[in-house]
Simulated scan of single mutants.
Amino acid sequence: MRTTLDPHLIDPSANEPGLVVELRDARRALLFDLGEIDRLAPRVLLRASHAFVTHTHMDHFAGFDHWLMLAMGRVPRLVVWGGPRFVDQLDHKLRAYTWNVVHRYEVPLRIEAHSLEADGSRRHAVFDSRHGFGRSEETADPPHGSDVLVDEALFRVRACIVDHEMPVLAFAIEEKAQLRVAADRVRAMGLGTGPWLANLKAAVLANAPDDTPIELAWRDRDGEHVARRPVGELRALVLDAVAGRRIGYVTDLRFTEPNAEQLSRLLSDVDLLYIEARFLDVERDQAARKNHLTARQAGEWARRLRARRVVPFHFSPRYRGGEDELRAEVFAAWGGAPHASAITSP
């Protein structure tokens, strides 16, 4: 079944970190890490509503400036999540620039920054172009049991903190249940398919009241059509729900049992696991010094998580041209069959 989330590595060679998850039919995207995001087409970056940053090493965060530069004057809102003290770090980055003209932009930009702190609390702040990206609307939430950062009708994003000799976030991207539409019933009602079906699915998943109106618009050989029907009348068009996919994004962490336990709580039975494989296992001492995983260790954790598909990435530059050896070591330890997307990004 065609799914809502379309993930692929930002760097097709899989050497640099970063994942983009496009939301099919929604003209939206989510970014995981902000490294060399200039590899992405501007149209994709302008659709990115949220970014989730594992940590603020340059190769994971330096691309924020490129995203911001594209967004200014074009989009009204960006949401950014990071680990401990991330709100402060984003504040410092914004203060490094002079903002004497941004308040004049026809489309003001509101940056909503959030940090998951080490004790499980969250901090929030807003940086608004109308006020020179000065910090405002600061709030904080006390520690609580939930690991959910964002929860929307189509997806949720969860996170945990792992150790890289500094706190790093690992992420789970979870697609909500998918609904199939009976195309023959759509035709029988004299309607045509279009973006309105996504609105209907969202209303059904949210258990919207039967009198909730749905705006219908579609085009066929007879021209353009516009109508309005209540959810109760359209509900019969929707068939069974199918469980959505779960995607993991894991990079920059030590091979330790506490890290493995954190990932097990977040990502057990994950459908698609993106996991770093920085070094070959013969260099595990070097990996330990650098606080990274070897390819074999990545595969062992993928097996422990019972991952259904695995895509290794974030290879050390010393393996340029020899990435297939790293992939082979991951797959041998995982014990699964490599998917084509693990060799050429999905």
Rank of each mutant, 00 (worst) to 15 (best):
M1I: 14
R2Q: 14
L9E: 03
N15P: 00
V20M: 12
E22K: 04
R24E: 09
A29G: 05
L34H: 05
L34R: 03
D38L: 07
D38P: 00
L40P: 02
M58P: 11
F64T: 08
L70F: 06
L70R: 02
L70W: 11
R74I: 07
P76E: 05
G83R: 02
P84V: 10
F86T: 07
D88K: 03
L90D: 11
R104G: 11
R104C: 10
L109V: 07
E117S: 06
S121E: 07
R123V: 12
A125E: 10
V126N: 08
V126Q: 13
R130F: 02
H131R: 14
F133P: 03
G134T: 05
R135Y: 09
H144S: 15
S146R: 08
E152V: 12
R158S: 08
A159C: 00
I161C: 04
D163R: 04
H164W: 13
E165T: 15
P167I: 04
P167K: 04
V168T: 10
V168Y: 05
L169D: 05
L169G: 02
I173V: 11
A177W: 07
V181T: 12
T193F: 02
L197W: 02
N199R: 13
N199I: 12
L200G: 01
K201D: 01
A203K: 00
D220Q: 10
H225P: 01
V226R: 14
P230V: 09
V231L: 09
L234M: 00
D240L: 11
D240F: 08
R246G: 04
R246E: 15
Y249S: 01
Y249A: 02
T251W: 02
F255Q: 09
N259H: 05
A260K: 15
V270T: 11
V270N: 04
L272V: 13
L280Y: 00
N291V: 03
H292L: 15
T294E: 00
G299P: 02
E300V: 01
A302G: 04
R303H: 07
R303V: 00
R304C: 06
R309M: 14
V310H: 01
H314Q: 13
P317K: 05
R318Q: 11
R320N: 04
R320D: 05
V330N: 00
A332E: 05
W334D: 00
A337L: 10
A342G: 15
T344L: 13
P346N: 09
P346A: 15
